[in-house]
């Protein structure tokens, strides 16, 4: 590990001040950053520990829920309100990593965890994300776990977070604090597609701090879930995952739907086309399948991951059917 200095931030303003120093990085639970520092993929010269900042989970007057960025993954997944009103979020968090890692990992760190592309981790491989302009060994290499949507010739990596997929489906908003003040933005606008700059993963300003994640009041989210398909039953990253919420009217048509995919793109993928295709349609497997087809129409699989296209379609269809089945 490259040497670095360490400081604990007592409040967000102090964190942003220290985070503005050249070479500084925020440190959450360290479960991703410490690993990447050991591999020398990340080489910060100072770490600003932000785990002492806001970790409260508060119900808001407007019916939403505000989750401090330092809240541990375990605390969020186990929170009563999350379990009953936003079950997809509990399920997504619980589907990720292990009990030990979820106890350490924070909300902020989970959002900004980096890809698990093996070439990104391997200092001997060419990777545009690690070394801009170096080339990408995954495009022609072993790319079974890589993206099928929104990728570019420069990078075909996926975003690995389970939690983010649920947040994308549930219209979450991210609260930020930077040198220029505070702002907020929809979670779906936090991460970027790779384009020509896969090293630029988010729309954050340098040293901008995530302070909280807000879930809007979304009554239909009480009927939401998350399904993750992976190579072993537990403790593995998603090949494909689906977060969905479904509101079916009394006449059996889809009144409203929220749908997002994981494991398929450089960012948590809100399936807006499928949602649009479904609203007003009968809540049947045929409609679900048609919506899935619409979303995956532009899929561009690589040499080893064509299976993800059909897997995504089937998982979308099955998850929506499951949410319909519960209705009786």
């Amino acid at each position: 590990m490259t040497p670095f200095s360490f400081a604990r931030a007592d409040d967000a303003a102090a964190a942003v001040r220290m985070g503005g120093a050249p070479g500084a990085k925020y440190l959450g639970g360290g479960t991703n950053l410490v690993d990447l520092m050991r591999e020398t993929v990340e080489q910060p010269t100072s770490l600003v520990d932000v785990t002492g900042l806001g970790d409260a989970i508060e119900e808001r007057a407007d019916g939403g829920l505000l989750i401090g960025a330092a809240a541990r993954n375990t605390a969020v997944a186990g929170h009563r309100t999350v379990r009953t009103r936003y079950p997809a979020l509990s399920r997504a968090i619980l589907a990720g990593a292990s009990g030990q890692i979820r106890n350490m990992a924070t909300m902020g760190g989970n959002l900004l965890q980096r890809t698990r592309c093996t070439y990104f981790y391997d200092a001997a491989a060419r990777c545009n994300k690690r070394v801009p302009g170096a080339g990408c060994d995954a495009v022609e290499g072993f790319n079974r776990i890589h993206a099928i949507l929104g990728a570019s010739p420069a990078c075909v990596a996926t975003h690995p977070s389970d939690m983010c997929v649920a947040l994308a489906a549930l219209d979450a908003v991210v609260h930020l604090q930077g040198g220029a003040g505070t702002r907020s933005l929809p979670l779906v606008d936090l991460h970027r597609l790779p384009g020509g700059r896969p090293d630029m993963e988010t729309t954050l300003e340098p040293s901008e701090l995530i302070t909280a994640v807000e879930l809007p009041a979304l009554p239909m989210a009480a009927r939401s879930t998350y399904r993750k398909v992976r190579d072993r039953a537990s403790y593995a990253f998603a090949l494909v995952s689906v977060a969905a919420a479904l509101d079916v009217a009394a006449d059996g048509t889809v009144r409203d739907v929220r749908l997002a995919l994981g494991g398929v793109a450089h960012k948590p993928w809100r399936a807006a086309m499928a949602e649009q295709a479904l609203r007003g349609q009968p809540a049947t497997e045929a409609s679900f399948r048609a919506a899935a087809e619409a979303e995956l129409a532009d899929a561009a699989p690589l040499a080893h991951n064509a299976f993800k296209v059909e897997l995504a379609k089937r998982t979308i269809t099955a998850v929506l059917a499951e949410l319909t089945g519960d209705r009786a």
Binding site: G29, L47, I101, N103, M104
Partner: peptide, 11 residues
């Protein structure tokens, strides 16, 4: 329970 290998002692 936590993983001590990913924990910086100073934290």
């Amino acid at each position: 329970r936590i993983l001590s290998c990913l924990a910086l002692a100073v934290q």
